[in-house]
Design a protein around this nucleic acid. Sequence first.
DNA 1: CGAGCTTCATAACAAACTGTTATATTAAAC
DNA 2: GTTTAATATAACAGTTTGTTATGAAGCTCG
Lengths: 316, 316
Amino acid sequence: MKLDERHLIQLAAVVQAGGVTEGAALLGLSQPAVSRTLTMLEKRLGEPLFVRGRRPLQPTPFGRALATHGQTMLTASRKASELLDTFREGGSGVVRVGGTQFFTDGLVTAMVAEFQNAHPDVRVDQSYGYFADLRAALTTDRIDLAICPIDLLDEGSELAFEELLPGRNVVACAPTHPLLLQRRPPIGALLDYPWVAPPPNSPLMADLRSLLLSLGEMEPKIRYAGGSLISTLTYVQATNALTILPHGVVFGLRHVGTIAALPFKVPHPERALGLLRVKGSSLSPAVEAFARHVTESFAALRHLIKRHEERVVWGV
Amino acid sequence: MKLDERHLIQLAAVVQAGGVTEGAALLGLSQPAVSRTLTMLEKRLGEPLFVRGRRPLQPTPFGRALATHGQTMLTASRKASELLDTFREGGSGVVRVGGTQFFTDGLVTAMVAEFQNAHPDVRVDQSYGYFADLRAALTTDRIDLAICPIDLLDEGSELAFEELLPGRNVVACAPTHPLLLQRRPPIGALLDYPWVAPPPNSPLMADLRSLLLSLGEMEPKIRYAGGSLISTLTYVQATNALTILPHGVVFGLRHVGTIAALPFKVPHPERALGLLRVKGSSLSPAVEAFARHVTESFAALRHLIKRHEERVVWGV
DNA sequence: CGAGCTTCATAACAAACTGTTATATTAAAC
DNA sequence: GTTTAATATAACAGTTTGTTATGAAGCTCG
């Protein structure tokens, strides 16, 4: 015979609390409601649940046995409510975020870590890709957010775009690079050194190409290509090679001492780093909280950059 | 926010079964009922529980997390139903039975053991006492059943009485006792040996007293008194002492070889071993089953005794 | 790509159940 | 005994539950 779960929970509450009145209070119900439930239950089961006419209400062995199952349900119910509450305030859930290699490794992962200090029960699933992949992943609901450089023209799609950083690249090198010793190195000097190229299909690669092209170089001396951010940093640090990196990434790494920016003005690409999401889609609170965190973190970064530039002169 | 347990259970069923239709079937409900529950839940929570428009119905991470709690409740509910069912058929529960020492130790405990071979989940709480104690325990609901000798006059109280064995005592001794070698020992010979007395307040003690009185002995040579059945048996076996025991107990121990009955006719007490319960009280199925088992076991014992007596002559 | 099948969503309705307040009973305490 | 606290009962309004009937939407296969 099937039993109503609600009834068992009320039974458990009464057994636990040691009285109908307290049991009802435990559940936030009125005493008559619970009392009726018990009367009803006893009648239906045909078995007494409590010893009749004893005032410190005493359950029968059978009543107590049933109550343990009710207790199980009660705690499960409590946990479910708690889960819902924390989920609602973004305290739990899953955030699936995609991004390009360099920005993700250089900036976003640190933000994820910081975010999770405040939201320990939110899981973050990170994945890599370029704009086309990320857009596809967004529209097919494989990720919730994407953080990637996007051509400023591509507005008006089904994706909502929020600018995080202006498109701005720098030529980067080891902090020990000879060019850093010169006060105003001629731009042509860039061609005197070997180059490290970012991954082949990356926007950065396109930027590098156009930069070198603008210097008149048809066939740049690319010595090493395809590595991730950490590979690039490692390589550059051990050689005199140059590479192109997003300004924000280099800035974010300023305290690490593994990379420096050369005072050359690099043409701005018509691109900006942005936070992408599907337009009109309702994201879970955890995702919203994460998006807010990322936005604020990048705003803070921009602020930092601005303050920094008031003191140090970047570019020529 | 509090969630309806039933809803969570339905959610769990659907997640587990992988579809609304199968989930509904799992719970014995119609598909629309469950479908509506899910729709309602999603609306109230404001969070999707399933990825919309995907046919192998796929829960969201949140939906899956909620469902685990529902699963907990579902299994608890199932267990509760099962508990109820087995309880109803006497398969589980508690039997509180009281009895006098000698009958309990000599006969009833073995029946309890046999009963529990068929009802492993029924717990038996045994307690000892004489009629007055047992009656009090019965009327104050501290025990469900009592098995004790009762004066045949005491009918008509608030207790229901069912005769299990006729009142009949025998003089018992070690199987090696010299009196057993004599074909027709004179009854006066009983006074030549020391006696072991049953516990002071026991009905048996009264019987012993009246037996010895009928033999003209005012001051029986009581050497040992107050022991339990096992003590009495142990003592008697190691000496030439005599004692008085219920016939049924001695018969029940016939295969053990520790005790024998002497062929003396002992006056019947106006008493019989009976099964007592509170008149009109509704007992749990397990208790009913146990009472049935005890009654049948004693009936079988009576039958055995009868068959045995057709072959062997007991008494003079 | 459309036919056919399966599965899910919606509608409408009757019955049951929930919870409430007000009040009567009953056990316990002094 | 009185008094007090706790439990049971009654009456009632609102919600929820379940049902069947039916429409809409995805999958599958030729």
